[in-house]
């Protein structure tokens, strides 16, 4: 009887340890998967940002055009017009989320922000800006930039600018 009981207890112990080892293995596997998924999410968000950086200058809202033909430059008057028109349209938050999109004029250089009252000889266009209401929720910020060609319709001239996209992570 004692020998039998001993044997059963031995079996139970072996099975119990086996289950504990498997559980530990599963916990490690789960953490590894979670990290892998988080890394994929970050990679996706980076790809999304890169796509935005490529497609924004080609969007009809910003790109210059000449009798309907699309040019490879940003129309500075359209940048200002867009920021004024989109401010009243809440659907852009669905498109862009929490980010800042700005264009800086490098040549001719100017650090004056552009607005409807100051659109001559200015050099900073804030196209879109939306920050999370609670700044403590911001975990980080990713910034990408790209050089762009600028077109000034008032003087019919071109310049060089920098398109900067800042995305806030929560």
């Amino acid at each position: 009887m004692r020998k039998g009981q001993l044997q059963i207890q031995e079996t139970i112990l072996v099975v119990f340890i086996f289950i504990v080892l498997i559980a530990l293995g599963l916990v490690f596997f789960y953490r590894f998967q979670l990290q892998s998924i988080q890394s994929e999410i970050q990679e996706y968000e980076h790809d999304h940002l890169s796509t935005l950086l490529v497609s924004l200058p080609e969007s009809p809202e910003f790109s210059c055009s000449f009798r309907g033909e699309k040019g490879h430059c940003l129309d500075t008057f359209k940048l200002l017009a867009f920021s004024e028109v989109s401010g009243k349209d809440s659907s852009f938050f669905q498109r862009f989320g929490y980010m800042n999109i700005s264009v800086y004029s490098l040549y001719p250089s100017s650090s004056v922000p552009c607005s409807s009252s100051q659109f001559n000889s200015c050099g900073v266009w804030t196209i879109y800006s939306r920050l999370p209401e609670d700044k403590h929720l911001i975990l980080g910020k990713e910034v990408l930039d790209s050089p762009v060609s600028l077109y000034f319709p008032d003087t019919d001239s071109y310049g060089v600018g920098l398109l900067v996209v800042e995305v806030y992570g929560r």
């Binding site: 809202e61 008057f77 004024e84 028109v85 008032d154």
Partner: peptide, 17 residues
Amino acid sequence: SFLSKVYAQKAHLLSFF
């Protein structure tokens, strides 16, 4: 509709020059 508003605003800005 949206692009028309952007171009209309641009036309308004050009009228100053």
